[in-house]
Design a protein around this nucleic acid. Sequence first.
RNA 1: CGGGAGAUGUCAGAGUGGUCGAAUGUGCCGGUCUUGAAAACCGGUGAGGGUUAUACCUCCGGGGGUUCGAAUCCCCCUCUCCCGGCCA
Length: 414
Amino acid sequence: MIDLKYLQNNFEDASSKLQKKGVDTAILEKLQELFTALKAANATLESMKAEQNSMSKLFGQYKREGKDISELKAKVDANKEAMVPVQEKAREAEEALYSVALAMPNFPDDSVPEGADEEDNVELRKVLEPRSFDFKPKEHWELSEINGWIDFERGVKLAKSRFAILKGEASRLERALINFFLDTNRAKGFEEYSVPFINNATMLQGTGQLPKFGDDLFKIEDEDLYLIPTAEVPLTNMYNDEILSEKELPLLMTGYTPCFRKEAGSAGRDTRGIIRQHQFNKVEMVAIAHPDKSEEVFDLMVQNASDILTALGLPHRVVELCGGDLGFSAATTIDLEVWLPGQNQYREISSISNTRDFQARRAKIRFKDGKKNRLVHTLNGSALAVGRTIVAIMENYQNEDGTIEIPEVLKKYM
RNA sequence: CGGGAGAUGUCAGAGUGGUCGAAUGUGCCGGUCUUGAAAACCGGUGAGGGUUAUACCUCCGGGGGUUCGAAUCCCCCUCUCCCGGCCA
């Protein structure tokens, strides 16, 4: 959630920041209004409560002194009755505020480039030259057919469309990649975790998926539980509603989980192959950082993900997202896009974001800064998306006859 | 899933209707003493909101109720532990 006090005190600045994300100033004015209304309603209610409390305290005294309480009781009863509508008003004001505030995206950093969509993202650098082929490189689903790696039909049979089965070498490759990613992250200082794949609504709200993006989540019937769309949710929320000590920071975490996404609104996009599935595997990095040091942690995470791709021999480029393409919770995001020769284009394989204090405020993750409690910064990034890495290996390591080489670094894992 | 017990501050653990945001111990921070440390002693030490700062409001697992007043009484839920069932 954005800092409402900041909005109130720096309205011009806040609204120009959010314009980058395409947020209309009118809704911000509304938000500011709701915030002011809530404060006013609370002030009224609290003073009535104070009066009520002080009168109630007199009862004990009166009884001890043997005084008559009937007059006092009449006063208290009247005040109590008068409080009911005020209380209701305050409750409504709070509800109104949060329904808007929780749907408001994070402020982008000032450094984030202007732009409407992915067309305006800024390429920072390219890493590794794409290999030149002396034949026409095939797309991964063609290669899958030749090698018998992916069973699309039976995946659909078991669940529905956008589910697939990896078979034989492909399945082993997936397992090898997960281990390789985890080992590499661990070597960089990220502690490994194995977490629940189902989280409750409070946690999903903490990281920003709820309440606005519930349609993208698989919900467990009759339970307050959801399949996680990314390990960012459980890893970040491990510290939900906790106060850390400064010396624990930064907390660097990594974990492998499957990710479940309804992909609502993505109908017709990437329907072929396993680029976009309802279930996919991912190894995630999450960091809980001191607010003054989140920048360097961010750089470490970008570098780590890029190094993994380099180690796999996969050409990629580093792209800074523009305001319009930035996710809901992110203040800044760098995507790594891997080269897919079959598709003849770069495709996202990792996305690393600094959410600053946006998630920390929602999830109440703080640390002791001297006497005061201060919000941490939270960061997350893929290292890496496993399914898309398989696609990248298939397309980049294909031979003319459709067979696929295994990258050197993975051989000891298979 | 059925039966029993419980949920209080870092932890342990008092508190069964008013002056309790909460005894005591412990942990942590600071100080005295010490060459230094330990011990001992002294002081401080939950969170959120609000205020220039005070006042003040809220929080004793969560939600609802009774009452002028609830950590304390009632109802529902969740979680933990024990017993049984089921089970990788």
